[in-house]
Design a protein around this nucleic acid. Structure first.
Length: 672
DNA sequence: AGATTTACTATTTTT
DNA sequence: TAGTAAATCT
């Protein structure tokens, strides 16, 4: 095994964390301080010290982050690809998923469930809402997502539905009784369907870690627990961590309170603030050197966050050389904004920058629409993150529903989804059918069941039975081949329902390729609901990769040479629904996260008007921008007025703007 | 009664 | 665009 020169490869702060002894540690890591690097080296150091890799548990915010870290540890230790390397980890949810299946049986909790993702939860809430809210007028009916959010928030922060409702949607408090009724029924239906939703995964894992027998097994299993992005954990997750490290106390939590952006999902900043109280003899480390950004970008970021009251004081220092200041640009409309960004991207690419070094970030997924059209028009390849993910697309969910039923016969949401696709079967008939279907003991008896329906619906039912008969009778193990049985007849439905069916068919082809890697249906089903990275349409991969379009939330932890933050208007940032002071502070932290993604070039843009279905709307700069000292920017277009011409070619109207182009704030090829 | 079509409206962030 | 509600079919 190669010896790593930890002292040489890390700075003093990082070295302190990496070589920290046993016991609880809290690491307050600023943006760009090499947090991931530090965790990777920590794992490598432990292994060099003789800790077996399988004794380390790595908990991260995405599975992708975990996989990348593990790869880096492997490389660092020069472990060959085909050598076994049992270090593992992932998100709380995916780890919970695996553990519940293994250890659930031991203490008598569900272990053969399928997973209900967000969309499925909404479907179930919708069904239940319709049943229970029948006598309430349409306008006064809470949407399924609203029910789900309220109940989920209560679960994840250990508060009552009433408190949750008061916090999230106080205007709905008069309907409290209904929320509670729906919550009870939702729980019952999940149990009947043998499914767990995202909340259940955490809650059940917590039950598992609290059980004396299992707790002992876990304490032995992992001697070291490393948790990344600790600022975005919720109360349940903090309890899980506490239980996991109860015996050995070897917990290392890394986080940045200034980057806490998930409180809508019950992430609780108190987890970090109160960590030292909860874990006695905890050592506190700080990583305050910023390796990512230029001093100009860091200055801006520091001022963005300075106004926030509730935070650990950190003093981030830049080590990079001075470069140009961030640029602030006002455009006349969202279309011009798209042209501007596309032009700039073109220029950056022309001058030799790698496409994968460029990202465009925004507050909400739909802010990218105009830009996407413009990039498509110009043939600039991009990768879209945020918004609807692959496994959430309607057609993908449609075909997967058959597999879900095959894997878990009682899955109500999957059954309703299938049934309602067919002619003559609507919500009512589907529900009746489902009730009769679950009376059957085993899926193998389904083809022989005597369920019959009148004319049109009857025809549909035999079509459904035909597919299931083929699925059940086929001895096929390969999931790709199973999928083909479904996709062949589904194709007709697809082309009938969607005008863009060609593209959707492509998605399904991708899905078959992905599924062909799996020889066991169970494993496939378990993984897809928690898979956040597979994007389906990979597109043409250009040599230098693709530029990235992403919501700010999904950009967490990532970095690029050049970052555009678009749609920085008063109507989108902070989001207008954020009224409470603490909500505004979180929005400011979100802005901070966006700005600190940039290494060298940062552009903030905002349109002064927006075209919408109902005409056009006037916009102003985000108050967050107005608050900032204009000297921080290369240009302050606020005081200068409109800059961009709409023909999409002659875009430099403002003289200063042109001049500055020559000042070198646009990179030369020699810059990288 | 229940399915299907049509018209309308409102748009956060997600493991 | 996507989800919902009213209007119209079967």
């Amino acid at each position: 095994m190669k010896k790593i020169d930890f002292k040489k490869e890390l700075n003093k702060e990082q070295y302190g964390v990496v070589t920290a002894g046993n016991g609880p540690h809290l690491v307050l890591a600023g943006a760009g301080s090499g947090k991931t690097r530090t965790l990777v080296y920590r794992a490598a150091w432990l292994i060099e010290q003789g800790v077996r890799p399988e004794k380390i548990l790595l908990l991260t915010f995405t599975n992708k982050a975990a996989n990348e870290m593990i790869e880096r540890v492997r490389k660092l230790l020069s472990i060959k690809n085909n050598d076994k390397f049992p270090l593992w980890g992932g998100t709380f949810h995916s780890v919970a998923n695996r553990l519940l299946r293994i250890y659930g049986k031991q203490i008598g909790i569900q272990s053969d469930f399928t997973i209900l993702d967000r969309d499925d939860s909404d479907k179930l809430f919708k069904t239940i809402g319709k049943e229970l809210f029948k006598n309430i007028s349409a306008k006064n009916k809470p949407a399924p997502a609203l029910l789900r959010e309220t109940i989920s928030f209560a679960n994840n922060s250990k508060i009552s539905i009433e408190e949750s409702l008061e916090h999230k949607f106080p205007e709905w408090l008069p309907l409290l009784a209904y929320f509670e009724k729906v919550a009870t029924e939702y729980k019952r239906r999940k149990k009947e369907s043998n499914v767990l939703d995202f909340d259940d995964l955490l809650l059940e894992w917590k039950v598992l870690t609290a059980h004396p027998d299992v707790a002992k097994i876990f304490a032995k299993k992992w001697e070291y627990v490393l948790v990344d992005e600790y600022q975005d954990t919720n109360v349940i997750q903090a309890e899980i961590i506490f239980n996991l490290s109860r015996e050995h106390k070897n917990i290392l939590a890394v986080g940045d309170d200034a980057q806490s952006i998930y409180s809508f999902r019950a992430a609780d900043i108190r987890n970090i603030l109160e960590f030292p109280d909860k874990f006695k003899n905890c050592q506190l480390h700080k990583l305050e050197t910023n390796y990512r950004s230029t001093p100009e970008i860091l200055n801006l970021a520091n001022q963005i966050i300075a106004d926030n009251g509730n935070q650990f004081k950190k003093n981030l220092k830049a080590v990079k050389d001075s470069h140009t200041r961030p640029e602030l640009v006002a455009l006349r409309s969202n279309l011009e904004e798209a042209w501007f960004v596309a032009d700039r991207v073109d220029q950056l690419l022309d001058r030799g920058m790698n496409a994968k070094g460029i990202a465009v970030l925004f507050r909400a997924a739909h802010h990218s629409q105009a830009l996407e059209m413009e990039l498509n028009k110009r043939g600039i390849a991009y990768e879209m993150r945020g918004g609807l993910r692959f496994f959430e697309r309607a057609h993908v969910k449609d075909v997967l529903a058959y597999l879900k039923v095959l894997g878990n016969f009682r899955d109500e949401v999957a059954w309703l989804r299938i049934l309602e696709m067919y002619e003559g079967i609507g919500p009512v008939t589907a529900q009746q059918l489902y009730r009769r279907i679950v009376e059957i003991k085993d899926i193998k008896e389904l083809p022989d069941s005597k369920i019959e329906l009148a004319s049109k619906a009857g025809n549909s039912w035999s079509k459904i039975m035909e597919i299931f008969t083929r699925l059940i009778r086929s001895e096929e193990q390969n999931v790709g081949k199973l999928l083909n049985i479904i996709i062949n007849p589904y194709g007709d439905y697809l082309s009938e329902k969607y005008t863009d069916y060609r593209q959707r068919q492509d998605d399904l082809d991708q899905l078959v390729i992905f599924a062909s890697e799996y020889e066991a249906l169970d494993l496939f089903l378990h993984e897809i609901s928690l898979q956040e990275t597979f994007s389906g349409r990979e597109g043409r991969q250009e040599d230098g990769g693709n530029i990235v379009l992403s919501t700010i939330h999904q950009a967490k932890g990532l970095e690029w040479d050049a970052v555009f933050v678009i749609s920085m208007t008063d109507q989108s940032f902070p989001h207008p629904l954020c009224v409470r002071e603490e909500e505004k502070e979180e929005e400011r932290r979100l802005f901070y996260v966006a700005a600190t993604r940039a290494e060298k070039y940062l552009y903030l843009t905002y349109p002064l008007s927006m075209f919408r279905y109902d005409g056009h709307k006037s916009l102003k700069a985000s108050p967050f921008i107005v608050d900032l000292d204009s000297n921080l920017f290369q240009h302050n277009e606020l005081s200068r007025g409109v800059t961009y011409a709409s023909d999409g070619v002659e875009y430099v109207v403002d003289e200063d703007y042109k001049e500055s182009d020559d000042n070198g704030f646009l990179p030369d090829a020699s810059d990288w």
